[in-house]
């Protein structure tokens, strides 16, 4: 299963997509979308990362165990960010009331 050989055509189209998305990120950054600029920039980056992980890193063709391990790692990162921000965002509630 991990022996799966990805066709060159797929590699090239992934590369092309990544290049186009890089262009899109730069182009969209010139517009002031207020708080949405971050969301747009991050969405494009996450999508690019997904393409690299799934195709260049062959995760799409990997075993379920590998996929679960990776998902667990990403989940742990989300915990790190979510718990930290749940603290910082709620620190000044006392002062506000």
């Amino acid at each position: 299963m991990s022996e799966h050989i990805v066709p060159i055509k797929i590699y090239l189209s992934i590369w092309l997509t990544l290049m186009v998305l890089t262009g899109v990120t730069i182009w969209v950054a010139y517009y002031d979308l207020k708080q949405f600029s971050v969301i747009v920039a991050l969405s494009i980056a996450v999508f690019k990362a997904l393409l690299v992980v799934l195709y260049f890193m062959h995760v799409r063709y990997s075993s379920r165990l590998t996929k679960v391990i990776i998902a667990a790692g990403v989940f742990w990162l989300i915990i790190l960010i979510a718990l930290t921000f749940s603290d910082y965002w709620t620190r000044n509630w006392q002062a506000a009331f």
Binding site: T22, T25, I26, A29, Y30, Y31, D32, S37, V38, A41, L42, I44, A45, K48, A49, V52, V53, F56, M57
Partner: peptide, 19 residues
Amino acid sequence: FVDIVWIFLFPLLYLLGLH
């Protein structure tokens, strides 16, 4: 993986103050 890190670093560091 190192490529992916840069994919995030580029917009977050370089592009955030363009407009």
